[in-house]
Amino acid sequence: MRRPLMLSSWVAVLVLAVVFVLLNSGLDTDYIIPKRLLRLAAMGLGGVCIAFSAIVFQSIAGNRILTPAIMGYESVYLLFQALLVWLLGTSSLMLMGQNGNFFASVLLMLAYSWVIHRWLFRDGRSNVYFLLLLGLVLTMVISTLTQFIQVTVSPGEFAVLQGYNEASFNRVRPGQLGYAAVLVLLVAGVMLRSRALLDVIALGREQALSLGVDYPRCVRQQLFLVAVLVAISASLVGPTAFMGIFVANLAYALAGTTRHRATLPMASAVAVGLFILAQLLVEQVLNYRTTVTILINLICGGYFLALMIRTRGRA
């Protein structure tokens, strides 16, 4: 593990955070700084969620191109939001409250994760390209359904739904942030504690079993935790698509190892840093003329493309 690099990346994140909070704030502690701190907290939690879920999911799936987002987790979340508005109208937001929606989403993600687990990891490790294709097709089908629902709702409801389609740090509520923080700390803590187990799981089903790991049970548990993280990040900051791949692969490269004790913190630093950087650019340089989603997708989508071309035939 390259400790100095790990340290300097966290220092860089810290510097970015301070710049983000204080730049052009006029040191206004009544409105600007508290608002920014709220967004910063959302970015921190969202970043950790994306980093941990991507790395653990990749270790289980045994390749570096799949992430929960690509396997359709996020599109299921969006479909759920669309269905809510379609069936219950915007009153659904009142009816369930922010927290109701949040916890319902977590449950839904768990259900989807169970289906994925039953279906995909049935025979241990399946063909990577089949999984990738299946994930993209699933995402496409579910997104089309979501779109279909979106065009049938009223313009007002449509505007509400449109808000869910973009990653944003502006819609977090302090209460929701509290629940999310507790859950994220809990899940990330459990994952960090089982880092040695995750290292063994990354060796594959057969090697893990022969090292005495109850592989099916451990994978079930870890996928459950991944689902919780994906649900939190989706409801906190919205869909992030390719970001997980970018974050995980950059973390592998920077950490110089696939041991989870190094990759998990490193990926978190990369994810949080990327969020803050993108938000900083949007707020201070581009003056809200573009969105965080577009910036992040530009960077991460480009990287994903490069990765596909570079590792063709090896993944």
Binding site: A202, L203, G204, Q207, Y252, T258
Partner: peptide, 8 residues
């Protein structure tokens, strides 16, 4: 197994 793992 596990050829693309970065381990010593």
């Amino acid at each position: 197994p596990g050829i693309n793992l970065r381990l010593t």
